[in-house]
Structures are given as C-alpha cells and as structure tokens.
Design a protein around this nucleic acid. Structure first.
Lengths: 251, 251
DNA sequence: CGACGCCTTGAAGGCGCTCAATCAACGTGG
DNA sequence: CCACGTTGATTGAGCGCCTTCAAGGCGTCG
C-alpha cells in the first residue's frame, strides 16, 4: 500500500505554480491559494493504478515525481496507452468536471503524486477565476497532445512514430527540468512503449535497434539519451507547436 | 465566398443552450446571456477550411448544420482527421484559451456555422461561472473522444475500427436529433472516412463492402443506415461511456 | 543458483498498402 | 439530348510492414 511522505525540497504545489506561471504571472493572492491547497502526497509503486475506468473521482492528482500514463483496454485485453505524464502534469484533472472516469491512470515506475480534493480546487477557482482559465488551458493542451497522437499513430509508420514520441518526451521533460543533456530517466519497458505507440513489443524492439543503429538514441535500463535531436525530429516529423509551450527555447 | 444568412427555425444559439441544458438546468439569466450572444452565421461550401493550423483565433464557432472535422497533415502530405463534429458541437472552442491553432478545421459537405467572439464568450462566462464549467466540460468530452480514437486506431484492425466510428456517429447524431431510424445523412467520401480511421481509401472501400455483406450497414450517396446497432457495437467493441452523454437512452 | 522479467532474435504469414485500371453517377456545354 | 470531364466507388494483383509464435539470452534478486 502507498505510504504517505512529505517532499523534501519543495512544497508539493510548487511544481504546479511554476507551470501555471509560465502562462501568466500569478498574483500573490493566487499563489497563496495554490500554496495553501491541501495536498495529500502518496508514493506509488511501479505499475500501480491510481484510478480505474468506471470509478467516480472526488479528487485529482498532481504528478510530483516519476511518470504516469492514461490507458484503456479493448475487450480483447489489448492495452493502449493514450498519454504519458511528466512531473507537474495533472493526469486526471478532467475528473473535476467528468466525474466518472472513462480511462484508467497508472504509474509507470515508482512515482509520487499529490491528491487535491475537487472541492478545494473548485473553491480556489471560484475565488480566482484566472486559475480556472489556467487549469482549463492545461486540459486543452492535453487534448492537443491527444490529437497529435492520433496523427502519429494513424499516419506514420513505426519508426517515425517512436522518434516522434521520444521528441515529445524530451521536450516536455526539459520544460520541467527533468532532462539534462538531452537525456532522461524513463523507467518504462519496451512493451509499455509499444502499447503507447500502437505496435507489438517485438516490433518496438526492432525499431529501437534501428534508432540505435542510426545513432539517434541510446537506451538502456530506464535511461534514454537523445544523441541527435535535430535528426530525430526530422525522422519523427516532429513540430512542437502542439505542445503550446510558452517560454521554451526549443519550441 | 460564404454567404451570410439567418436560420429559419431557431435562433442559432438554441442548439447550444439545449446541449448545455442536458448537463444542468440553466437559470433564466444564463439562458438569456447565451441567447443574447452575438452570433455571425455563415454558410460553408463542402471542404472549406474554417481555420488553419498556425493561425490565431479571436472567435470560436458553433456548428449549426452539417459536419466539420479537425485535421492535420504530416510533412508527407498525409491527412489525419482527428474528430468529426455534429450540429451543436463547438469545433474550435479550445481556441478560447489556446490562441494559436494546432489544427485545421474544415467543413465536410455544405455546412452552417455561427461565429462567436471570444470576448463575448469570456464576458458571459465571467458573469455566469457555471457557463465556464459547462463549456470546459464540453472540451473535456472532446478530449475523451480523442482518447477513444487513439485506442481505436492504435489497437483495432480496420473492420472494427470503422464499426466503432459508425457507432459513435450514430449515437452522437441521435443525441441531437439528427438521426432518425438509426440512419443519418453523412455527406462524406470514403476517402475522408479513411483519413479519419487511419487506413487507405482502397481498404476503406473493402471494409465497407464487408460491413454491407454482413448486413450491418447500408450506405450510398451520403446516406448511412445502421441495420443492426447491437451487432455493430459488438463488432466495433463499442462502449459509449466515453461520450459522457447524460440523458441518453442508448448510452 | 534458480527464477523471473525483460530484451533479443528467427521464421512464417497476414493485413493493409501501392499502383493501376475500370465503373458508375452526375453536371456541363455544345 | 448526347459527348465529355470529373469525382468517387470498385476491383485486381503484388508486395511489404508488422504480427504472431516461439525460443534463447541476459541481468537482477531472492
């Protein structure tokens, strides 16, 4: 069972505040409300469900460390991962207005999340309408990423698809300071990546080998290094417009 | 160029009001604000872009008649359609908070849309915060549909994929009263459907023939009839949960 | 050291693609 | 009223990306 612990460096909400601030300057009042939001921090093991499809949510979570993903199963038991979250993301913010979950959310690798009650969130938004706008915007960016995944899976072959996903992860991790030197820690199996890309684990492996052979990436035991980002973007037909990043150099 | 005309039966916003009312009862004040929202109605030819990727939007549109779709092109010129809208939908509501478009939106077949200035929308939302919630919810349902498309394209083969899409269209059209007798008018070419499903026009054609041979659908010249919805849902592994419909019999 | 999880590799087959030609429906102009 | 062009649906043949089904390798951990 998940233990409760306190974060060492920052208050849990610091990540969220920093992220929202990249959109527009928050007033002191807005910052204070966010800072005072009660957050229940929990550590998760790898592959642990946070919430499952069909359940009703009364709180949303903020990812603090590690990774989470959105997934869904077909009736035949095939899994599709529709999104991967990096620290600072709110994986199930949508449940604020869509009570019953249409997806499941799980941790990838060991992670730390903070739960915020919907009532608290709603109250903060009522007090400071710009928070509503900022959170709404977050969900809109999520939607934009979904759209790009549809394009990626629907129109590109396996190799560029993987390249595209890696470009996205790199830029998003850079944006929150979790990728140094174009390399990042990603405790995800090839099988899971395959589920996100819509291909077979076997084929995922072959694509990875091709990417390594082409000297685009290095990958081993949870560590991914992008060797040539420019060329990887070309191969993956990657344009970061859809991420709607603001103060980003690489975007 | 698109002509401007007035709608015969209802005020343009009636559709939107009816839709939002399915979520929660609107107060008279809320209804009045919506009713008074200045709407610029325009008729569109088939295949006409409403807004293109990279452009900045200062207004959003409400689909009144016909169909629109969200699409994006790869650098190789392949097109993926990520969403199809039915009357009552707001195809680019997202631009309210994401100014620069990450997608293009176009009409499918001749359509009628109403444009609403963002400033007007924002003002209405500030006056009546529940409108904000309702519109936010709309965009969240859009996102849920995107997710399901990722699952559909990523994990299912062509035949169930098409079945799934047809189920979705039927139920959404029913919800706004645009599908009588499990059949609906859909002025879309097989090539366009193929772009939405992520397959080739040629293969789309073969899947259609299979669906007809299995007596699941009838389709000719812009008219689609669902002959056996229960079985089509089975074949398409369709569960309408993700549509988050409220007062719907079939959901 | 044995078991387990994950990565890797091989071979065979199928789903969907590509390329191309034909057909059907419709609108247009002569 | 018909020849013609255009657009979309249909069909065929061949090929290739990716899947499926295995088996084997390798590192980690009890």
């Amino acid at each position: 069972m998940p233990g409760v612990r306190s974060l060492n460096r920052h208050s849990p909400n610091t990540l969220m505040i920093r992220k929202l601030e990249s959109i527009f300057k928050l007033t002191d009042g807005e910052k204070r409300v966010l800072q005072d939001l009660p957050v229940q921090v929990e550590s998760l093991r790898a592959e642990q469900d946070i919430i499952r499809i069909g359940e009703r949510a009364s709180r949303s979570c903020l990812l603090l460390e590690g990774f989470t993903c959105v997934y869904k199963l077909t009736s035949e038991g095939k899994r599709q991962i529709m999104a991967v979250h990096v620290p600072g993301d709110m994986p199930d913010l949508q449940s604020l207005h869509l009570k019953v979950m249409d997806i499941s959310i799980a941790s990838i690798g060991p992670s730390v999340v903070g739960f915020i009650q919907h009532d608290d969130l709603r109250e903060a938004c009522e007090q400071y309408p710009r928070l509503t706008a900022a959170l709404w915007r977050e969900t809109l960016v999520d939607a934009s990423i979904y759209r790009d995944w549809i394009l990626n899976i629907g129109q590109r072959s396996a190799y560029p698809r993987v390249a595209h996903l890696l470009c996205e992860l790199l830029i998003r991790l850079k944006a929150v300071g979790f990728a140094e030197d174009d390399s990042f820690h990603l405790p995800i199996t090839q099988a899971e990546l395959a589920d996100a890309i819509g291909i077979t684990p076997v084929h995922m492996n072959r694509v990875f080998q091709a990417l390594r052979a082409d000297e685009l990436i290095e990958a081993s035991r949870g560590k991914v290094a992008i060797l040539d980002e420019r060329r990887l973007r070309e191969e993956g037909d990657f344009d970061p417009l859809y991420l709607h990043l603001i103060n980003s150099v690489s975007a």
